[in-house]
Write a protein that binds this DNA or RNA. Structure first.
Length: 288
DNA sequence: CGGCTTTGACCAGCGC
DNA sequence: GCGCTGGTCAAAGCCG
């Protein structure tokens, strides 16, 4: 199965098994049994916990898990190693919450320290002081998408790209453009299925989504994330963007269309199902 | 002109 | 110790 392979790949990448984090249960199960309470949800990992998570506003303010319940009927998936992911743009997705520092406080580098580090780096390019690079909470998910960089409501600056071993697709590195926000994300395509995009978030946002609500747009072009330009591709996005609720008017009509589909269960889900089935193991679908 | 991407180089960690 | 690989830096260039 494609998706499972992807998840396993992510496990390797993250250096931990998802079962280490979510023994016997996936986030789906949290939603089913815990009344939607996630111990450490995606939203927290993204640092939007106190923002009325726009991410899922599109889902009639449903909790992520609820969205999942509708979309994937996770309660019947039992111990499938899947969990929900942010509704990424253009896509159906499979995610894996992960953190190498589940028990760690998110690293909040003092501004002064950070400045010092940058200064020294500029001057001497000294050794990096971060002995353990990946100490931030991380969250990875797979997305079926033609677009590499998925809209999630935040603005990102690409700071690097590397060819990845065993993959013909490069990995891109993005950093949140907001000063003092240390969130990073990596984006790469699955080499087993080029249509799948693996996005890994690292760290927590310390600020609200920069994308303003439509009502405050006034044209909105100015707040349109830079990469919208990149998304002008002949492909059609298949799911709503990760708007984090403050949906920007600049998001193209196609996305709104999908948004509506996503919000209305029933036939709309069936439509999405066509995409999801590319992602969801067939046996999961049979269980429904 | 500011903000962003591109891309080659550099650095650190890790395995052999 | 050496080489490989992933992650980051920063100059150059692009674009609205």
């Amino acid at each position: 199965m494609e998706s499972k392979e992807g998840v396993l790949k992510m496990e390797e990448e993250l250096g931990n098994s998802f079962s280490d984090y979510f023994p016997l249960q996936s986030i789906f199960d949290w939603s089913c049994e815990g009344g939607g309470n996630m111990p450490l949800g995606f939203m927290e990992l993204l640092g939007v916990q106190d923002l009325k998570p726009p991410l899922f506003d599109m889902g009639q303010q449903q909790a992520p898990s609820a969205v999942v319940n509708q979309a994937l009927n996770p309660c019947s998936t039992k111990n499938e190693r899947f969990n929900y992911q942010p509704a990424t743009p253009n896509s159906s997705s499979i995610s894996s919450a992960s953190s190498e520092a589940v028990n760690d406080e998110p690293i909040q580098v003092d501004d002064d320290q950070e400045e010092d580090q940058q200064k020294t780096k500029k001057q001497l390019k000294p050794k990096k002081t971060n002995q353990k690079r990946q100490s931030e909470p991380r969250f990875a998910f797979m997305t079926k998408s033609e677009v590499d960089h998925l809209e999630d409501g935040y603005r990102w600056r690409k700071y690097g790209q590397k060819a990845v071993k065993n993959s013909s697709f490069p990995r891109s590195y993005y950093r949140c453009t907001t000063t003092s926000c240390n969130v990073k994300k990596r984006v790469e395509r699955s080499f087993t299925d080029p249509s799948m995009v693996i996005t890994t978030y690292e760290g927590q946002h310390t600020h609200p989504s920069p994308i303003k609500p439509r009502s405050s747009l006034g044209g909105g072009a100015g707040s349109a994330p830079y990469h919208y330009r990149q998304q002008r591709q002949p492909f059609v996005n298949t799911l709503p963007p990760l708007n984090f609720g403050h949906n920007n008017g600049s998001i193209k009509a196609g996305n709104f269309h999908h948004e509506r589909r996503f919000c209305s269960p029933g036939s709309s889900l069936l439509k999405d199902h066509g995409l999801l089935q590319d992602v969801i193991p067939s046996h999961m679908l049979k269980e429904e």
